[in-house]
Design a protein around this nucleic acid. Structure first.
Length: 302
DNA sequence: CTTTCGCCCTGAGTGC
DNA sequence: TGCACTCAGGGCGAAA
């Protein structure tokens, strides 16, 4: 939704100037190729693309091809503003752009916790030759995003490859969902929601999941991601606004996340919250129990 | 090689 | 009232 909102304003626009108010917001930028502002000033942007939680805006022309890369972290936002707008102290980076139709605009990278960051990065070919991400037809992806898997809403996402990877892994299903090299775009909240919908325990070993269960889980993941996109994403920061400035809460749609002690919407059993990877997992203790594998692979007794 | 862990960061919230 | 402390999140490099 950030990408879709940004697209009409930046596609075809030229960058007139760059203000970096918080250098720490450039931690993804490798200065070897040049300074962030110098690489951007005077360049024209194409349509933004997205893969997982990374957003990038390709620059038109140039050799090598480059793109503005942004990771919004948890608290990051890309906001469109009229020039002269007063922004509060959370503004980290500003792009001053001029669009052939919309005229001059400011693009604000606002990030309270400085977990997100921006960079100028080179574009490299995708190994599978498919478009680099949603929003682009070019088979290019920023170098630093190359190891990130496609997200399940990407038409080029490989369902069978994902299932095959799960069969080989020795880990729990939630760890796999959060592993951005396997599948991207799923954070702690969406993982809990999708696992609840699929009636799976977060520690269910991936190798015990049948193809049918994996298919079902992927379908639930897609529903969660689509709902989140439609509602403008999840954020618990009260000042959350989308690219047009409208408020976008998702919290009212949550079935398990943050609902410990409250009844499971499906069976009424109180939701529990359990420590997991220095974070927490929420699940229904009745709907989401560990399942025995259908076929147990037992080593033959000697 | 695979898997796990700690750190980055800061405002909101909690407890004394 | 004020202070100390905890928590939340995604990605990355280090450690196991």
């Amino acid at each position: 939704m950030v990408r879709a909102g940004l697209a009409p304003a930046v596609d075809g626009a030229t960058i007139l100037g760059v203000d970096v108010l918080e250098p720490r917001s450039l931690k993804r930028h490798d200065p070897v190729a040049g300074a962030f502002d110098a690489l951007l000033t005077g360049r024209t942007m194409a349509e933004p693309a997205r893969r997982g939680k990374f957003l990038w805006i390709p620059l038109v022309g140039g050799d090598p091809r480059r793109a503005i890369v942004a990771h919004l972290g948890m608290s990051g936002q890309m906001l469109l503003r009229e020039p002269g707008t007063v922004e509060d102290g959370l503004l980290r980076i500003r792009l001053h752009i001029e669009h052939p139709v919309h005229g001059e605009l400011w693009v604000h990278f606002v990030d309270q916790r400085i977990f997100g960051s921006m960079a100028v990065d080179t574009l490299v070919p995708t190994p599978d030759g498919m478009p680099g991400g949603r929003g682009t037809t070019e088979a290019l992806v920023p170098a630093q995003v190359g190891h990130i898997a496609r997200d399940p809403l990407d038409p080029a996402f490989d369902d069978d490859g994902f299932a095959a990877a799960l069969a080989k892994k020795n880990t729990g299903i939630k760890r796999a969902l959060l592993d951005q090299t396997l599948v991207s775009g799923i954070g702690n909240i969406y993982a809990d929601e999708a696992l609840w919908a699929a009636k799976l325990h977060y520690e269910q070993p991936t190798r015990t999941l049948s193809r049918a269960r994996i298919r079902n889980l992927l379908a639930e993941v897609r529903l969660v991601l689509e709902k989140a996109l439609a509602e403008g994403g999840t954020s618990f920061d009260a000042q959350y606004v989308n690219v047009n400035g409208a408020s976008g809460y998702f919290a009212h749609s949550l079935n398990v996340y943050g609902r410990q002690g409250l009844p499971c919407p499906r069976c009424g059993t109180p939701i529990v919250r359990e420590p997991f990877m220095n974070r927490s997992s929420h699940r229904c203790p009745r709907c989401q129990r560990l399942r025995a594998p259908r076929r147990v692979a037992v080593a033959p007794a000697v």
